[in-house]
Design a protein around this nucleic acid. Structure first.
Length: 596
RNA sequence: GGGGCGGUAGCUCAGCCGGUUAGAGCAGGGGACUCAUAAUCCCUUGGUCGUGGGUUCGAGUCCCACCCGCCCUACCA
């Protein structure tokens, strides 16, 4: 098996509040399942991300709470890092955008684009808040729609008639933040010249047809059909300074937050390399033409990952219509695949923090197993279409599939062997049927692996669970408990085969259920760590304040293959793998949702 | 307005380039077993594949129109 370099790039959660399970179903869990599989398959995975901490919404939220933007970002950076830790997200580095390193890399990308001529300056009319002097984004302005007369129209679009609007045309415009009348002033900003990448991006995308999920491919193709220049700076003081003479010292101009956020994948890779002791190590994932890069996000982020970030990379490389030369970091790889999820809804409704239609990661993990959530998202998540999370389906999946099928398989086989033999028995002569079932189990690694490598988690999880069903069937049909007296040798062989099937299933399920696979691994006598788990570490940048990062060494025993179990390994009576949920939790959780 | 996705058994969903009697899990019905968190295993009821046209020897599977639902729409990170 050749070892490939694979960069996994989960989208950067925005640090204006805690994240809910809809968020993590899009960017986090798919990325982690993918990465865990790739590591087990022997590939060199680098998974980096962090919290996205700049921009107007953070500033607005901070103002509302009466704290500084920095304080707000600090708080939610920590909360989100803890949540992702709780989910078992095996980041090589989860950092943040407020580091000096990130600022420097974001500025370097800007400068590279500027040097190659892909960035231009332009004066526009923009709305600012008279009291703060900050840009007032269109969606923060409301007023009367000039087309239909609806009074609650937003600056960017009227919710009543659906027309796109220009905020300057609104009748009676007012700020949704504090009600004041916005001032429209001339302001100058930098724009990214997206049309200059129309051709190169088009041919780049063409090679992706059939490889990407069809909806992502189609959506991106439409995006590329009409590209317009996009502003990449804002009137704001919370963000990365524009690194040009005459700009860099201005307190009122910053890079637009999306611009610095997408650079995070690169800056985090650089930070990871520095922390790992080999400052150039990141290049193996960014400059090796054979390296593969996979970006994971919700569908609202496709535009940034499939259009704008690739354009930025092309421009930095000097590969747009205007040519140019690579910047000081060198030529950088474009995305191999943009893996986008659709949206999760909550009991039929859109997630909404303000309306309490929400379950935050932290609250979820306080009450339920992390693997129960991971499993649900894998098998019933919004992979190809919007999908509804319901508590009754969650309880059912947990009880029927995790507890009754997989947990029970582990329990019945291990406890029977423990009670009657006390160790993993040796196999005697195998029947054809034994050989068949073992062979099918071995082949499942190819089938499940093929699905995982293409981010088809539903198929992958279902395929893995099929081996669990096969093992349950094998045990029932062979009924080793009937052979205790008549044929103890055959009984041992059956148990050996069954335990081998359990061990295989444990491996197949590791990307989805790392915590419980670890338990099964130990039950079967494993002494070394199996699944691997992230840790939170406090770090700083030479002399700066501490901040938490997620990191870890994921160089474990786990391999994507059937590994023979060792006869003679002592077995103890097991404890149940998963907790069965009483049906009353459905009512309890629904009551919580209705409390608002 | 433009774009995308979906409408397949009571429920949640699979069905790739069109091809034998349309599948799975759950729920429902019947049976077996007792190792196991009453878990497991076997058998079984159940569908005019949103509607109407069309292409084809043959269409959930391609084309057109329509109905319904959801999402995106680029100064929203």
């Amino acid at each position: 098996m050749s070892s490939r370099h694979i960069l996994t790039a989960p989208a950067w959660p925005y640090a204006n509040g805690p994240r809910h399970i809809g968020h993590v179903s899009g960017f986090a869990l798919p990325a982690d399942m993918f990465s865990r599989y790739q590591r087990m398959a022997g590939n060199k995975v680098l998974m980096v991300s962090g919290t996205d901490e700049h921009g107007t919404p953070i500033q607005v939220q901070a103002d509302k709470e009466g704290v500084s933007a920095r304080e707000l970002a600090d708080r939610y950076n920590r909360v989100i890092a803890q949540d992702l830790h709780g989910l078992g997200m095996t980041y090589d580095l989860f950092t943040r955008t407020t580091t000096r390193n990130h600022h420097a890399v974001a500025q370097e990308i800007f400068k590279g684009l500027h040097d190659n001529g892909y960035v231009f300056e332009k004066k526009t009319m923009g709305a600012i808040s008279p009291s703060t002097g900050r840009t007032l984004p269109d969606r923060y302005i409301e007023g009367t729609c000039p087309i239909c007369g609806y009074d609650g129209a937003r600056g960017d679009q009227c919710d009543n008639c659906g027309n796109q609007l220009d905020p300057i045309d609104l009748i009676n415009p007012r700020s949704r933040i504090n009600g004041e009348k916005p001032k429209f002033v001339e302001t100058e900003h930098f724009f990214l010249d997206l049309p200059a990448f129309s051709e190169t991006l088009g041919s780049w995308l063409q090679g992706k047809e059939g490889l990407w999920r069809p909806n992502v491919y189609k959506f991106t193709r439409n995006l590329l059909d009409e590209m317009r220049p996009r502003p990449i700076s804002r009137d704001l003081d919370w963000g990365v300074p524009v690194p040009l003479p005459g700009w860099v010292d201005r307190p009122d101009k910053r890079l637009y937050v999306w611009f610095d956020a997408v650079v995070g994948y690169l800056s985090a890779s650089v930070e990871w390399a520095r922390r790992s002791g080999d400052p150039d190590a990141w290049r193996a994932w960014w400059q090796n033409p054979d390296a593969e890069t996979y970006y994971f996000m919700g569908k609202d982020n496709i535009v940034f990952h499939a259009e704008i970030w690739p354009a930025m990379l092309l421009g930095y490389n000097g590969e747009g219509d205007k040519g140019g030369t690579p910047g000081s970091l060198g030529k950088l790889n474009l995305p191999t695949e943009v893996v986008s999820s659709e949206f999760l809804t909550m009991e039929g409704k859109k997630f909404s923090s303000s309306r309490q239609v929400v379950i935050y990661v932290r609250d979820f993990l306080e009450r339920y197993d992390v693997d129960a959530l991971r499993y649900y998202i894998a098998v019933a998540g919004p992979e190809n279409q919007d999908t509804d999370f319901t508590w009754s389906e969650f309880v059912r999946r947990n009880n029927d599939e995790l507890v009754a099928a997989w947990g029970n398989l582990v329990n019945r086989s291990v406890s029977f062997a423990a009670k009657n033999i006390g160790e993993i028995p040796a196999a005697g002569e195998l029947t054809d049927l034994d050989r068949d079932v073992l062979e099918r189990s071995r082949k499942a690694f190819d089938a499940v692996g093929a699905e995982l490598s293409r981010s088809r988690f539903k198929n992958a999880a279902n395929e893995a669970m099929r081996t669990v069903a096969e093992a349950n069937k094998y045990l029932s049909e062979q009924s080793p408990w009937k052979l205790k007296n008549d044929d103890p040798e055959r009984m041992k062989t059956i148990l050996h085969v069954a335990l081998q099937l359990v061990d295989d299933a444990k491996s197949l399920l590791t990307p989805f259920l790392p915590a419980s696979s670890e338990k099964v691994h130990r039950m079967l006598g494993g002494q070394e760590e199996w699944s691997g788990a992230p840790e939170i570490r406090e770090v700083s940048e030479d002399g700066g304040p501490d901040y938490p990062v997620l990191t870890g060494s994921y160089d474990t025993q786990a391999r994507w293959e059937s590994r023979p179990i060792a006869a003679g390994t002592p077995l103890a009576p097991p404890k149940p793998l998963f907790a069965k949920l009483d049906s009353s939790v459905v009512d309890e959780e629904l009551a919580r949702l209705e409390q608002s």
